[in-house]
Design a protein around this nucleic acid. Structure first.
Lengths: 138, 138
DNA sequence: GCAATAAATGCACTTCCGTTGCACGGTTTA
DNA sequence: TAAACCGTGCAACGGAAGTGCATTTATTGC
């Protein structure tokens, strides 16, 4: 538990009770979570607090935002090797069409793409949709 | 003009005046358009009509929907070689961070990605963000 | 051509998510 | 201790997607 506090402090985020809970929740989940997910998990917490906490986490490089094509912003904790705050975050995400969950495939990087002349790439987002490990195994 | 009518009829879509106008509008634009764009272009048309027209076009394989990460659904006409109604549409899209426009790079296909065991890919979406041809040239 | 049917359109409304303004309260700092 | 700052909670706004129903327009069968 103290580890979470340290992690937050290292990222210049004051470790309040709420923030620690949210961090813990996201650490336990292995999938990307939406604001609504956290809201449901902490019924007593206010939406705005969660919203701003995620924004703070994102700015400080604690989580990264994921656009998985559902038009609902999701977030996942940055892995130790995640450089999304410095460079573009180039790992890809997988969205399961069955269970509707989204996971980071941090070890899978987005392949380099040759763009036409005049186009300058700054960021990339690759989402693979299909059936995830859990759902295909059943 | 008659060509558009034929195109729609070939796709089993009745060529009404509104639909022809929308098709023409999208054909003249070289970028992906949002519902709001069409709404602004045809002030007298109703939102619902445009919305349902796009849905119909999508079902019939006339346009494909694009998720460019702006959380606003955009649409672009399918090219002759576009197989998005049969298989997954594997070309990538480019979103300009400067002019906020999104274009199809139909000749650029999404590279094959090796997924971990148990994951089955059904669809893929790759969006490159950066500066487009028009904006970088200035 | 006319009535019956089906399709397309228009209007009103709802819902969901993201976002912001403002006020309160606790914590830190001078 | 007072002042400043930051986190939190409440309320409300706004954009976009989506739905139900009435009305108009087009198609079909007689």
């Amino acid at each position: 538990m103290k580890e979470i506090e340290k992690t937050l402090e290292n990222k210049s985020v004051r470790p309040t009770a709420m923030r620690i809970l949210i961090y813990k929740y996201m650490a336990e989940k292995e999938i990307a979570v939406a604001l609504t997910d956290i809201e449901n998990a902490f019924a007593k917490a206010d939406r705005t607090t969660l919203y701003r906490t995620l924004k703070t986490f994102e700015e400080k490089g604690i989580v990264h935002q994921i656009d998985d094509g559902t038009n609902i912003s999701k977030y996942a904790l940055c892995e130790p090797g995640c450089n999304c705050e410095i460079e573009q975050d180039l790992h890809l995400h997988f969205h399961c069409n069955n269970c509707d969950e989204t996971v980071c495939l941090t070890e899978h990087k987005i392949p380099q793409v040759n763009l036409p002349d005049g186009y300058v790439a700054e960021d990339a987002n690759l989402v693979i949709k299909g059936i995830c490990e859990k759902c295909s195994g059943q």
